[in-house]
Design a protein around this nucleic acid. Structure first.
Length: 400
RNA sequence: GUGGCCGUAGCUCAGUUGGUUAGAGCGCCAGGUUGUGGCCCUGGAGGUCGGGGGUUCAAGUCCCCUCGGUCACCCCA
């Protein structure tokens, strides 16, 4: 029996003309980021498993695709019933970036502004807007402790979304320090507030009763007060420094016409955030298009100084699903040259080379004429060809 | 990880209360016709009916399991 031809679960082939749309969307996002001075880097798809686990990545750590040890090391691990994997596919770009910064600390300019566009993998159950392989468009600022970093990251992210034609986005902003203060105040100092954050994050979806049920281990009056606080809190309901930072971020973004909103119930699942956190929402979809926040000190794990770091990540597939493909496929000059014989095709190939040199932005595509001309014309139209010409007219017979 | 719906050719699907060698359209390959090629005609390749087990004289059809797709939940980009 033939092997099945489908890609692995939750992963997708990219067929034309989607590949062209993706290429242009990625280019425009990167153009915005590099115009802001973010430098492009790359990191490997795989990291040592130790880098990924214990990275405070929240539930994502459970979703790591692990890579088996190889050869003798695998045999030994099997015999000892030891950990069988020593590598894993990255589940985000933030953890690899912290490793990258620690590794290249001495050679990097500080502050360092970095752009990182690459695929990540999570072993989740696939559904709409959620895949097991997807790309993130990250920008991060390393070495800037003030909210200028947050403001620029939010501004650049919204600008990138506008550049690809996704309008009507709103950034929701909150601060982990504000949440921490509220939790401490109503529930008392908690060792690991992670699970409390996760429960509170569901307030808008589940409602107060079910959230209270999830927090049944805590003082009922405190939980109720905490949820009431979330409902009506404003940025000044916390430490002065935090309130000032939030006010600065909100004011700066609003003053440049950005749609920005304080959302006390925004929590996010990652454990590594230390300050402001943000998400980009759009009225047409339930999930967020981008997410990020401040995660100071992550570099310390890798033996480097505890640097201030802040980042924002666009979900590439989610954005591509929202753009109008015609915006990227139309308006190009693409010429298909159809040839009826090999001699004609060879003449046209030479002619096409000359024309490309004269018009680098255009496409000149020399093809054998298909038996079903109607189908061929339809296919070419779908690929964005604005001209289909006959090979005989494109390049005449060679001179004797 | 939990639940609903769905798996028949490359694609879209038909297949009657279980009953002969499982079909159509489109696409693909070849040929005929046509002022080479779009319409039309002929032929061909391509399916262990997602996989496994069970019930039955007989399973694409009924039952169970499993894998995959899809949607929702949890969580996330």
């Amino acid at each position: 029996m033939a092997q099945k031809a489908q890609p692995a679960r939750g992963m997708r082939d990219v067929v034309p003309p989607v590949g062209e749309v993706r290429r242009q969307v990625a280019n425009r996002i990167l153009d915005v980021y590099t115009a802001h001075g973010f430098e492009v880097i790359e990191t490997p798809a795989m990291e040592d498993l130790d880098v990924l686990v214990g990275s405070q990545g929240g539930d994502n750590e459970k979703l790591i695709f692990k890579v088996l040890k190889r050869g003798e090391r695998l045999d030994e691990a099997l015999a000892r019933q030891d950990e069988l994997a020593d590598l894993g596919l990255r589940f985000d770009l933030t953890v690899p970036l912290a490793r990258f910064v620690a590794n290249h600390y001495n050679e990097l300019p500080m502050p360092f502004k970095v752009a990182h566009v690459a695929p990540v993998w999570r072993a989740e159950r696939p559904q709409k807007g959620r895949y097991r392989e997807f790309s993130q468009c990250d920008i991060d600022i390393v070495g800037e402790p003030g909210v200028a970093a947050e403001v620029e990251l939010c501004g650049a992210t919204l600008e990138a979304l506008e550049a690809v034609g996704v309008a009507g986005c709103t950034v929701r902003v909150n601060d982990r320090r504000l949440l921490r203060a509220a939790v401490d105040r109503w529930l008392g100092p908690i060792e690991g507030p992670g699970p409390v954050y996760i429960a509170l994050d569901k307030l808008d979806k589940l409602g107060p009763e079910r959230v209270a049920a999830e927090l049944s281990g805590y003082d009922g009056a405190g939980v109720k007060a905490l949820m009431g606080w979330l409902d009506s809190a404003d940025p000044t309901d916390g430490p002065e420094e935090v309130a000032a930072d939030l006010a600065a971020t909100l004011a700066s973004l609003s003053s440049t016409g950005r749609s920005v909103r304080f959302d006390p119930a925004l929590v996010r699942g990652m454990g590594y955030y230390t300050g402001q956190i943000f998400e980009v929402s759009h009225p047409d979809v339930a999930y967020s298009l981008a997410g990020g926040g401040r995660y100071d000190g992550m570099t310390a794990r890798f033996g480097a100084p505890a640097l201030p770091m802040c980042g924002f990540s666009i979900g590439f597939e989610r954005v591509c699903d929202m753009v109008d493909p015609d915006r990227f496929l139309r308006g190009r000059h693409r010429v298909a040259v159809l040839c009826s014989s090999q001699e004609e095709q060879l003449r046209c190939l030479a002619e096409a080379s000359a024309r490309r040199a004269g018009d680098p932005s255009a496409t000149f595509n020399v093809l054998r004429r298909a038996r079903n001309a109607r189908k061929q014309a339809d296919d070419l139209a779908l690929l964005g060809y604005d001209q289909v010409v006959d090979g005989a007219g494109f390049a005449g017979p060679a001179q004797p």
